[in-house]
Design a protein around this nucleic acid. Sequence first.
DNA 1: AGCACGATTAACT
DNA 2: GTTAATCGTGCTC
Length: 201
Amino acid sequence: MSRLERAFFARDTLVVARDLLGRHLVRVLEGERITGRIVETEAYTGFDDQASHGRHGETARNRPMFGQVGVSYVYFTYGMHWLLNVVARPEGAGYPAAVLLRAVEPLTGLDQIAARRDGRPPREWTNGPAKLTRAMDIDGGLSGVDVTAPGSPLCFEEGEPVPDEAVQTGPRVGLGSTPEPWLSMPWRFYVADNPYVSRHR
DNA sequence: AGCACGATTAACT
DNA sequence: GTTAATCGTGCTC
């Protein structure tokens, strides 16, 4: 299975978020591959997106969002959760942007995932942004990783693209007090009727 | 220096 | 449906 190259991520953030559906997220851990089929993403883009971590400018935390595309951005939130993004924007675009990985369908490394998600049914292993990082042992140490570099502990592979009729969109999740119109922008992408898409209120 | 809150989850009633 | 857990970040004083 071939790896997604830098050019894949050097496109409009919304296009990349959409195109990541059906692709495989690969975590190489102690020589073993934990992989999942991506079924849910969200786009965060531009200085004006009031929901994006990049909205107040560059800081030590959000630095990857301002850097090269195809690099991971992993951050800590709610005092206990790590969330995984990958930087994506057109070449030469002068703004921060990234795609949040919200849910995957487990494919390989099931034993490793099960061990990290002990006691829970498979459906709840990776159906949420913090669940998948827990399942795949992803934390802040994996922020700023070039996912297109050979031998990287994190990468993306071609997988099988999802046809338009199987793609659904909607507002992004968990934005709380974010003002309109950003609160309602349909920048969440997910595979229709897939049991691993995250559930929420 | 202090403080409110978050791109969430799991355990309750 | 409601709420506690838990702490780094970034804004305000």
